[in-house]
Lab assay of single mutants.
Amino acid sequence: NRRVIAMPSVRKWAREKGVDIRLVQGTGKNGRVLKEDIDAFLAG
């Protein structure tokens, strides 16, 4: 159960899209999950 680094707005975006943010690979600094990462995860 790893800790995910993400801005609150990104966490909210993931929740709205029904995405478990822990499954998303972050591409930002220090592995931070970005809004673009959520979109890419949804795109496959």
Results as ranks from 00 to 15, higher is better:
V24E: 01
A6F: 03
N1V: 13
S9L: 07
A43L: 13
V19L: 05
P8N: 09
R3V: 13
V19I: 11
N30K: 09
A14E: 02
V24R: 01
R32A: 13
V24N: 00
G44I: 13
I5Y: 08
R22S: 10
V33M: 03
P8W: 09
V24Q: 01
S9C: 15
E36C: 14
V33P: 02
L23D: 10
R22N: 12
L42W: 06
G31F: 05
R11S: 04
G28Y: 00
S9F: 07
T27K: 05
A6R: 03
M7D: 15
D37W: 09
K35A: 07
R2D: 11
S9N: 12
M7N: 15
K35N: 04
D39M: 09
N1S: 13
D20R: 04
T27W: 02
D37F: 03
K29E: 11
R2V: 11
D37P: 01
L42K: 06
K12Y: 07
T27Q: 04
N30I: 05
V24W: 01
G26W: 01
I21T: 02
K29W: 09
E16Y: 11
N30H: 12
S9W: 10
I21M: 05
M7G: 15
R11N: 04
T27H: 06
V4N: 05
M7T: 15
A40G: 07
V19T: 03
W13G: 14
V24M: 04
Q25T: 14
V19F: 03
V24D: 00
F41E: 03
D37V: 03
K17L: 13
P8T: 08
D39P: 01
G31L: 04
S9D: 14
V24A: 03
V33R: 02
G18V: 03
T27N: 05
K17G: 04
R2A: 10
W13Q: 15
D39W: 06
P8A: 13
R15A: 15
K35Y: 06
V33L: 04
R15N: 12
V19M: 03
F41V: 07
R22G: 08
V4P: 07
D39F: 06
T27A: 03
G28L: 00
A40H: 12
K12C: 15
R2N: 11
L23E: 11
Q25A: 12
V4R: 06
I5N: 10
L34K: 07
G18W: 04
K12W: 11
I38S: 00
L23N: 09
D39Y: 06
S9H: 12
F41N: 03
D37S: 01
E16G: 06
E16F: 12
L23Q: 13
V4Q: 06
P8G: 08
I38W: 02
P8Y: 07
A14K: 01
R3I: 13
L42I: 14
D37A: 02
V33N: 00
E16W: 09
G26P: 08
D20T: 03
K12P: 00
W13R: 15
M7H: 15
L23H: 10
K35S: 05
Q25S: 12
M7P: 09
D20W: 04
L34N: 07
F41Y: 14
N1P: 14
I5T: 08
K17F: 08
R32L: 09
R15V: 14
A40C: 14
E36L: 08
D37L: 03
L23S: 09
G28W: 00
G31E: 04
L42H: 06
L34G: 04
G26Q: 02
D39E: 10
E36M: 10
G31S: 05
M7S: 15
R15L: 14
Q25Y: 11
R11W: 14
T27F: 03
N1Q: 13
D39T: 08
R11T: 05
R15H: 14
I38D: 00
N30V: 04
K29A: 13
R15P: 05
W13T: 15
K35G: 03
A40K: 13
E16A: 13
R15Q: 14
V4Y: 05
K12R: 14
I21H: 00
L34Q: 08
V24I: 11
I5V: 12
V10Y: 02
N1F: 05
R32V: 07
F41L: 07
G44H: 14
G31A: 05
V19N: 00
L23V: 10
K29C: 12
D39G: 05
I5H: 08
A14N: 01
V4I: 14
D37G: 00
I21L: 09
K12T: 06
V4S: 05
R15E: 15
E16S: 12
K17A: 10
A6Q: 04
D37E: 01
I5M: 08
N1I: 13
L42V: 12
